[in-house]
Design a protein around this nucleic acid. Structure first.
Lengths: 217, 217
DNA sequence: GGCAGTTGTAACAGAGTTGTAAAAACACGT
DNA sequence: ACGTGTTTTTACAACTCTGTTACAACTGCC
């Protein structure tokens, strides 16, 4: 279940896409202009962008540039594909030629989310089993109690596994936007996760930066 | 296994759909006109409607309107999608563009049924036995009185069992859409369910979020 | 090794959240 | 209008969580 932004000026298409994504359980935000999209992205974290290439006020690529880091799927009309494809050399992105089948879009969305680890409901490692939707954790079969805030933090860590995350970023992604406190809050929460789940080895401290959840490697 | 009405005037397609649905275990009723569909719906309870949008005597939407409450999947030809989509703002429904793959239809049927959990009418756990359609509950053989609202809440909890449900979501799904009150209503109703049904252990409080019905964990 | 900066850890208090009972508001038939 | 049964609101006590603080332990660098 991911947070997805749909940027497409044609209302009918935008609605259609949003509707279908919502149907399969994602949280969808709709934007009709590039400006709108950027202002939304500023305020809420997003897992995936679906960008129309041709827009009245700008084009999907420049929006994508400004939101670098967030994976994207581009919607492009038939003529404009070939030369622009260079944009997608990266791995997390994709594009679809209009007109498209809704099932195709849904499939590609799932594929991208799977690649970027953004929509997993359950996660298993060692003797740990975490269900983010049920909000349950078992360790070696025994249930463990986590608080909501601990789930939020753990989820961010796991979904960005093998990436070093700054405290600032962890704050942004796992805490309510309004939260401002600059303090040792995160350290304490990490400590609680390590203790409750026996994750001393998997949640690694990056000196002077933040933390990283390690898997495989 | 659900009871499904197929309304589609082209006999070949209707038969095909009915056949396939029957094949996977559903009970299928076929209708070829809107009038027929309504008369059938009057007499037998249905879990899902599959409605052709274009019909000789009417259209799928108006049939849907008259049977409000029953989830539906619309079959629509390519041109007529965009403007009609407003019909699906609700969560339980879906649509498919003709021509479609039979597997796609079957998948969407299962998805809708899963979302609405309509394939189960009764639910049993421990010494409890609940019939959501009859609106009866027995606990250890003895009948228990629940109010309508209590059934609604219990149903949402059970049909989303093992998922942590926010108060907001419970409100949306178990109360009339229009309800806005930000209050302790849900807490009180949960408390009554726990007391009346002895569900203290099964309905778990998720601090700062809402509740979760637990089954076999 | 010594130092400044950084992280680990335990304990605490206040804010926020839930359980519960009882009152108030509402719905509906008579 | 009244009475009955249901639903929402209110009030308060009990409880949980969370950010903070203080100090110990550690890290990297000179």
């Amino acid at each position: 279940m991911a947070r997805i932004l749909v940027l497409e000026d044609e209302k009918a298409i935008n609605d259609l896409v949003a509707l279908n994504l919502g149907m399969v359980g994602h949280t969808v935000v709709q934007a009709f202009t590039g400006k709108e999209a950027l202002s939304i992205a500023e305020r809420t974290p997003l897992d995936l962008l679906i960008l129309d290439v041709m827009l009245p006020d700008t084009n999907g690529f420049s929006v994508y540039e400004k939101l670098k880091g967030t994976p994207a799927i581009f919607l492009t009309a038939l003529g404009e594909t070939a030369d622009k494809v260079k944009g997608f050399e990266r791995g997390a992105d994709d594009y679809i030629v209009k007109p498209f089948e809704m099932t195709e879009l849904l499939l590609r969305v799932e594929a991208v989310l799977r690649r970027t680890h953004k929509s997993e409901r359950r996660y298993q490692i060692d003797d740990l089993e975490i269900d983010f939707e049920a909000k349950t954790v078992t360790k070696g079969g025994e249930p463990v109690d986590l608080t909501l805030q601990e789930y939020a933090l753990l989820e961010v860590l796991i979904k960005n596994r093998n990436i070093a995350l700054s405290r600032q970023r962890l704050m942004r992604e796992a805490w309510d936007v309004s939260f401002l406190g600059e303090s040792r809050t995160i350290d304490v929460h990490v400590q609680r996760l390590r203790k409750k789940l026996g994750l001393d080895d998997r949640i690694k401290t990056i000196y002077r930066l933040g933390y990283r959840f390690e898997e495989g490697l």
